[in-house]
Design a protein around this nucleic acid. Structure first.
Lengths: 287, 287
DNA sequence: ACCATCCATCGGTTTTTATGATTGAATATA
DNA sequence: TATATTCAATCATAAAAACCGATGGATGGT
């Protein structure tokens, strides 16, 4: 049973004529005859009584007509599947990005797409990438070097700069410029040990043949900022995460004699995945 | 979009495998691939993500799956159209048969098929036959000579005998035998003027070169029976219509020296009409 | 009685669908 | 790490079907 045939049947029933339906649907009249006959054969029941040169629905035909309407209605709804924005969206995100970037945007998304069942799973980068390869996540939002995995595609990337920070009362705060080796005489507060910031910081220290003194590890950048204001520690964080304390002067960005350390805040998903309208909408939210 | 394809899609989704679905449905695996692809093309949306060697429904695929279930469910219902007994049944019937035969049967039909919208239209034979030719009636129930119209078919026929009747107190009641010419000295009570009984009666009179004295015309055979018991009139009626008064002796059947006058109680419908289960059921009721 | 209209039928053509074998990639196994 | 197995996609080919145009029979109106 084909939807095209159902269409034909419906128009024939409505117009009470094979010929008129054929003209309207741009079929040969013989085609309409055949379609109806095939439908009748498939159902095992006559749909029209052919009495003289006019036709009329049989009892079965009348009932099947309503079925046909139902089906075409469903098919019509199904035609809009590509634009519908409801369903499940499973997002993996790094803890730092969840608190630093995503949380602020979520309310807007929830109000714009209330019918999306949003499932946000926090995790470390390696775990998230493994999950997306298993198609257990629809996309991941993380900070890292540009992706090189051929199975993944980057749907969004934004370069971010990592900056050295101290509190306004810190001795270094007033220095016009600070050397790298000088920096590493201080204690650092860092975010997660496996994150990009810590990795870059460790590399820079190693290049200076310095050893990072056992740093304090705190996931929340807000807490780090507070601690910096009060104390004598330094931090190495993405600029966007401390935009507010920098602008009000409570934190100071140190001018360091080293090429800027950059990395990417990015959205990745599996290369073979379909980018659903929901996913699309979420991407637009982020960008 | 074909129901076969929907079936395939459903099984693929349920089994999470093209190959398994192909085996189960007795298709080549390449056929399943093609069917799914064609479905995706028709909907303009991918239904499965092919990641590695395993597949999983996309968001659109999940939603379409429920649509597919709905459609196949409707199609399944439609498959039983040939056996369903609900809908409209339009019956044309002669007044005499309606009161004499049909009324007694209707309650049984109503309880057996409560979902049938039964439309009983009373009318004269010529009108009814015209209506059935226009497909304004599904069947007619009438008494007449055997049908000769090539457009109509007889679905049921029962030979009935017309008998001469008088009341128990009538002078002729005790006669062993009565001649035709003797009969026509009496007054007759008849049913409708265009009916079979009256026609036959008139013919018999003509053959005897007698003139029917202006007969009393009453449609109800019950009323005629009552009048016969009390009075001096005769009647010419189908035997079945007076079975009760004959058996209890209040009416007497006259033994007349003439070949028995027979005619047919019959059900006719248009030859090209589909005999629906409802109509079938009604026929079984009558027979 | 004639004409126009309607649906069924038929043969030929085109389009669609199904198949089997093969390929390439991913996963399990040794 | 190498090998075997499994899975879906692809391609060429064969089968099936859908479609069309012409024709014919029957009907209904003029």
């Amino acid at each position: 049973m084909e939807t095209r045939t159902l269409h034909t049947f419906i128009r024939v029933a409505e117009l009470q004529s094979f010929t008129k339906a054929a003209k309207e649907l741009d079929f040969a009249q013989s085609t309409v005859t055949m379609q109806i006959r095939q439908l009748e054969a498939e159902l095992g029941v006559p749909l029209f009584d052919r009495i003289g040169k006019r036709i009329s629905l049989t009892a079965a035909g009348r009932k099947f007509l309503s079925h046909a309407y139902e089906i075409t209605h469903i098919v019509q709804k199904a035609g809009a599947l590509g634009t519908q924005t409801d369903g499940v969206l499973r997002i993996g995100v790094l803890g730092s990005l969840l608190f630093g970037k995503l949380t602020a945007l979520l309310p807007r998304f929830r109000t714009a797409y209330p019918q999306v069942d949003l499932q946000i799973k926090m995790g470390r980068a390696a775990e998230l990438l493994e999950q997306i390869k298993q198609n257990e996540l629809d996309m991941v939002y993380l900070s890292a070097d540009l992706n090189t995995d051929p199975d993944l595609v980057c749907l969004y990337k934004q370069q971010e700069e990592l900056v050295f920070l101290c509190g306004a009362d810190h001795p270094l705060a007033t220095h016009r410029s600070v050397s790298l080796s000088e920096l590493f005489e201080n204690d650092f507060i860092v975010t997660e040990r496996s994150g990009v910031c810590f990795g870059r910081l460790r590399r820079l220290a190693a290049e200076q043949n310095k050893l990072l003194r056992d740093p304090l590890e705190i996931d929340s950048t807000a807490v780090i900022a507070t601690l910096l204001k009060a104390g004598k520690d330094l931090a190495f964080l993405p600029a966007y995460a401390v935009a507010q304390p920098l602008s009000d002067g409570s934190l100071v960005r140190l001018s360091v004699d080293t090429p800027p350390e950059t990395y990417y805040r990015q959205v990745l998903c599996h290369k073979d995945r379909w980018i659903s309208p929901i996913l699309q909408a979420f991407l637009e939210l982020i960008s």
